[in-house]
Amino acid sequence: MKGDFRVPFCRTCRDRVWPPFERCPTCLSKTIFKRISRMGILLEFSTSFISGHAQDFGIVDLEGVHLLGSVQGNNIFLGCTVVMYDCGVDENIRPFYKFRTGT
C-alpha cells in the first residue's frame, strides 16, 4: 500500500514525536501528523544480500527523524543527500521507506 510520509508533532509544545505516537512524551498533549521534508542525510549504509541480490540500505536523518531504509543510486557515500521517493506498508504490514541519492 502506497504511503504518505507524515510525522506527529505536539499540538502544545510543537515537539516532533518519533517514533510516532498520538501523545507527546514531554507534555502528553495530543499530536497532529504533518509532512516533513523528504530530503535527508545518509548517516551510515551497507549492503544486504538476504533477498538473494545486493540491496543497499542505511540510516537516514530526515530533519532529526532517524530511520532505516533502502538506498538506490550510483554514488552512495557517507553524508550524501538522499530523497525518500517512496514509502508505504507491505503485505506483512511492515512499513517501508525507499531513498535514492540526489536532491
Binding site: 551510515e44 549504509f45 544486504s48 532505516l68 511492515r94 521507506y97
Partner: peptide, 25 residues
C-alpha cells in the same frame, strides 16, 4: 514489530551491520 523506525529492515542483522560498518570506518 512495534518499531516502525526500522522500516522493512526489521531483523537484528541490519542494526548489527550498521554497528559493524561504523566500527570499520
Amino acid at each position: 514489530g512495534w518499531d516502525v523506525t526500522r522500516g522493512s529492515f526489521a531483523l537484528p542483522i541490519y542494526w548489527a551491520t550498521m554497528y559493524a560498518r561504523n566500527h570499520m570506518r
